[in-house]
Amino acid sequence: MISLLLVILGLTLIAIGVFFDFVGALGLLRLPNFYTRLHAATAGAIGGAVVPMLGASLLALGAEYLGPQRFFLAGAAFASSILLMILAQAGSHALARATYISQGAPLEPIEYDALRERGRGGS
């Protein structure tokens, strides 16, 4: 009973992750600017990679046909999701700051630039 509940919860989380992945890819293709694409890419990384890994961890705890090695799968998936939750936003922030400082992408659909008043890069 509890294994069926864990499997259904894990499959639901994996399906939510696939939805976020698709939305992130579509936003990365359709949005007009680098800084708006950054939002879509971070949504695709957090919602599309962290959530399915947590779902796979729960799924592996519930799926008893995988044998005793399923605990290894659950632990590795959980560790991957926690590390990725720390790393994805750090990488996006580093790339955005470097692009703003080196002026590598156009700022075209913009209304107000707060970083320009505080100085270069806002550090």
Binding site: G17, D21, G24, A41, G44, A49, M53, L84, A88, S92
Partner: peptide, 9 residues
């Protein structure tokens, strides 16, 4: 970057 993360998932 996003391709690599989603490929890991």
């Amino acid at each position: 970057d996003s391709l690599g993360y989603d490929l890991a998932a």
